[in-house]
Design a protein around this nucleic acid. Structure first.
Lengths: 223, 223, 223, 223
DNA sequence: AATGAATGAGTTTTCATTCAT
DNA sequence: TATGAATGAAAACTCATTCAT
């Protein structure tokens, strides 16, 4: 329901024929949304296709009209989520003009607004839970999604270091350290608020940013 | 209930009779270890008890002599892991005398040495993956394990702030932000190195610590 | 019920309007032909109505406009095949004037030309495969088709015996023995050439006839 | 039930322990027998594994302890039947000493006694019905079983021709023609007595033999 | 008339759990 | 205690049949 990956072009012009045309084209995304929800909730093995179908408002058999099987649905769910996440990420990168600190801030908040706080956050938990059972999917996710995110951060960090805004440091390690709290936030929300939930996501992210910014400052500068 | 899953060989006391030590005690821990491994690998639902038994070197039926069912085994595995983790944590807290920075460093490294790098790390992934399916377990874990870890960190942070070694900040949020990279490291190792694996765990942790320390420094001080 | 399955193009009368002849009549025979092909190939249970429809070039739903269900289609296919086979057989029996041996030869070859070598041969395999699942159909087939064939042979044999062209023998048993190679040939072609296929159908039938003729000769006569 | 392919060595010495040992070793052949019966009756697709299990007196799941799936059971059933049939055939071939006519007679009757009249006859129907769905099985059957039968007949015919007992003729075609009534008899019994059933199998075979023998006689000889 | 999306009963298959040995 | 054969409930998947368009 929330943020279905495909932004349904339900915008059939107001004057369009009332003929509620066969659901054919809407179905897949309804199923994907339902699948995402339940897969995230229960995991792959514990998810019953019957439940997915019911949540999507169709019968079990209908699901098989659109996906050849459980695994295919799972893959489609992930892929769909990834595509949406990447689209969201790309948009973020509109050439930024401010300071590197601002850019960083922008990245963190942007992630939260367009991914972390949406249903897409669940994909992360899913990948983590099922990585061992679906290594190819995990690989793909690491390359495409994580990789993209890392690249964005790398750009920001390196620019900051070049400009003397940030102190030199082990960039790759830093990237991972910066991403971790984001992923944990996403996971936590999909899991059962294991951590990072004693405070609001906003405070959490703000604190993360503050610590990070000071942590990156060149020696001798003031906060 | 049955003690540690991993620190086996505890009773191979030199003077012990060559006769195999009472299997009764050994079996459960072998089963727990096998269970942990496979549950972490596959998740609860996808784990076949048959596989667990085989890995433990017993027949499927034997498992039922020690645990009333799959779920009970799962709970025992988690509990066992948690107990071990807590024991490891407590030992760490021997009244520390150095600076708060040192204490923090000690906490991070200690976690790595006694938990993050051991099989116990898998428990985190397990909890995350199954939290929604076993809310009580997740609750318990959050209170006991995460809670304990948070308490340790809180102590360290508050002491540092009190002593003027750290700047004042949103402690609860900071705790979460500090823990996140640790959890991600643990999870990552149990999953398929989704992140935090471009660099060695040591570099990763060191970078985390460096960033953190500077991030915590009172304004005006030099790194 | 609807006539022959295969002798299509019957009404392409020269003077017919260019407008496609009423489809209504054509559909069933297309469906029957498609049904025969696939039922023979896969058997009743393994045949998907979807495939039959596709092969007939219509949608699955269309099939239900002409037949109330799968079983009805099956029955119609068999019936249609039987009717066609009987028509073919009757034509053969135009009062024959030659020797009984010639008549026999005529019967065997005629069977081959009008049934054995056509799609109708498949019906035999179908009946054999499904007899136990559709006893009424098998009964009907035995009475009508096999019975008719047996009658033709009986006539020929008895005429030959009466005229002294053939030796007296157990006519009923002989009929079965004579028919068997024909049926096996038909079946074999619909199955996967299990036997009777080391040689051409023509040689096979010729050898059958030769053996038979000598076998029927009165004692003391030369071949 | 009749003629289970594996002659169960139930011959556990009379004094053996009464301990009805786990059925483990008896199960497969019970399942094969049950499978043969039902597969022959219904065909592959229409056979429910549940029924096979029930007929074998076990639960559905048990079947899977011995065969990985429906298709595997099917293959095993065929293979088992073939092995038994071949064994029966080989025994028949004890060096025969009489006339070629006697040998032929022996072959036909022997086939009836050891195959045609037993449950093995059903395998033929099965192969014919399912040849198109399981081409490899059909191929194997043609080579091994039919091929073996043809070889036996070929030997007999060629010997007879060499000795002048039979007239020269197209041996390969003759083989097929001779086998056909046997196969039809077997099939007929497994199907619904479509033919060859107006008379007893014995009369049928006797008539077949008589016709055949006369049909094979050198020109000029008396019956 | 024709279509093909949707349905759900029916089968195959898996696996936690039981229990006789 | 330990075993592993047996069970059957539960879930994936198929496909004949229906029906709104």
């Amino acid at each position: 329901m929330p943020s279905t990956a495909h932004i349904e072009s339900s915008s059939t012009a107001p004057g369009a024929p009332a003929t509620r045309r066969r659901r054919k084209d809407a179905r897949p995304s309804e199923l994907l949304a339902a699948g995402l929800e339940i897969f995230v909730d229960k995991g792959f093995a514990a998810t019953r296709l019957d439940d997915v179908a019911r949540r999507a408002g169709v019968a079990k058999g209908t699901l098989y009209l659109y996906f050849p099987g459980k695994e295919a649905l799972f893959q489609a769910v992930i892929e769909d989520g990834m595509v949406a996440a990447l689209l969201a990420a790309e948009e973020r990168m509109a050439t930024h003009q401010g300071s590197s600190a601002d850019l960083l801030h922008e990245l963190l908040l942007g992630w939260w607004q367009h991914i972390g706080s949406t249903a897409l956050a669940g994909v992360s938990k899913l990948i983590i839970s099922e990585a061992r059972n679906f290594p190819e999917i995990a690989d793909y996710y690491r390359e495409r999604v994580i990789g993209r995110g890392r690249a964005l951060l790398r750009q920001a960090l390196e620019r900051g270091i070049d400009r003397g805004e940030f102190r030199p440091l082990n960039v790759e390690a830093a990237i991972d350290v910066i991403i971790a709290p984001l992923l944990m936030l996403a996971i936590s929300r999909s899991s059962l608020r294991l951590c990072g939930q004693q405070v609001s996501p906003e405070d959490y992210l703000e604190t993360h940013f503050e610590l990070l910014l000071r942590g990156l400052q060149p020696a001798g500068e003031r906060a």
